[in-house]
Design a protein around this nucleic acid. Structure first.
Lengths: 183, 183
DNA sequence: ATTTGCATGTAAAATGTTACATGATTGC
DNA sequence: GCAATCATGTAACATTTTACATGCAAAT
């Protein structure tokens, strides 16, 4: 939140849009989190709330980062970062894949692969557009580095999908006993 | 849970150990979840609880999967899988990386890279050991496929780290204004 | 003696998502 | 008039983690 406010003052609604437009790739925030956090940051003096009635629609509250907030932000940027803990349902299903036939497992991998492919196409578009739209933006290289992460990750995972489908095909079909009676 | 019980009947404690020994790579479960879930599965008739006092230590409850449970398991294995939603704190920090100096950002990437390297070494050991220890296990190929995922992912991310550090070094150092006074 | 490993469970806290309530303005 | 967009906030719910309470037995 402080990060986005360090670009320019904005409302909770604006932040939500920014999140969706920029870091959706690896981070999501819902209104259910944004508004309470904004309130807390205000209480801690890290941001300053200003009522803004000018624009269309309903009254909006615009938040600006304070010096104290800027300090907190750069402090956080230097703090140790824990690697993300993921829970990968597809891998869980693959792990127990011998309980069902190859077609079922294959379908799962294929669906995942298609999703990755869509991501990759999407990131490619964003990449080109960013470079075209704001070539002089000093933040741009940082944005692109996070995008490259998504691209490399998806590309590697597509390769894995292909390898996995191949491996699967070289394997004998498990005897049908999992769904029928005693294992 | 049903997946592990489909290998053989075991206790909640056993399941925890199995999770840590096999799918720790991409899935974690705490006792705080395991025991309540086991209770619920029992109520739904998907597992059968048996008191087992034989072994050393405290009394243990052993759970066995039922036919109904086996059905539920293979049904789940065929269900549509949603891609994992990650929240990658490192990327968030990198995205706002221009707020601090290169050394700080670089330190973050480097730390992540070291973590990835450790993972990769670890997975390599497990890979060799699995092949050595249970070469005739029919489940083995499935286990290895999930391991390969972790290996490919980490390898790709290490490449990204190197690329990112290089990119970072080609960038001009941001002027020190983030920490001092007005942005 | 004391640590370690086996073993089960609950409670509290933190985190996150979804749904709901409200309401003004703009464009069709 | 009606839908979409802008806009804020709360409440309910689901999920997950961490801490706590308990306690036996074997090894050090």
């Amino acid at each position: 939140m402080l990060g986005f406010l360090s670009y320019s003052p904005m409302s909770g609604y604006d932040i939500k849009k920014m999140v969706e437009a920029s870091i959706d790739n690896f981070w999501k925030e819902s209104f259910g989190q944004i508004y309470p956090i904004l309130k807390k940051l205000d209480e801690q003096g890290l941001v300053e709330k200003t009522a803004d009635a000018t624009s269309g629609g309903r009254a909006r509250n615009v938040y600006a980062i304070t010096d104290k907030g800027r300090e907190a932000l750069s402090r956080w940027l230097g703090e140790e970062t824990e690697p993300p803990r993921i829970r990968h349902e597809l891998l869980l299903k693959l792990f127990f894949g011998r309980r069902v036939d190859h077609a079922t497992v294959r379908r799962q991998i294929q669906a995942y692969r298609e999703h990755l492919e869509r991501d990759l196409a999407h990131y490619g578009e964003i990449y080109e557009q960013l470079i075209a739209d704001c070539p002089d933006e000093p933040e741009l290289p940082y944005w692109l580095m996070t995008l490259r992460y998504g691209q490399r990750e998806r590309a590697a995972m597509i390769e894995w999908c292909d390898e996995t489908i191949e491996t699967l095909e070289s394997l004998p079909e498990p005897e049908a006993k999992a769904t029928v009676g005693r294992g």
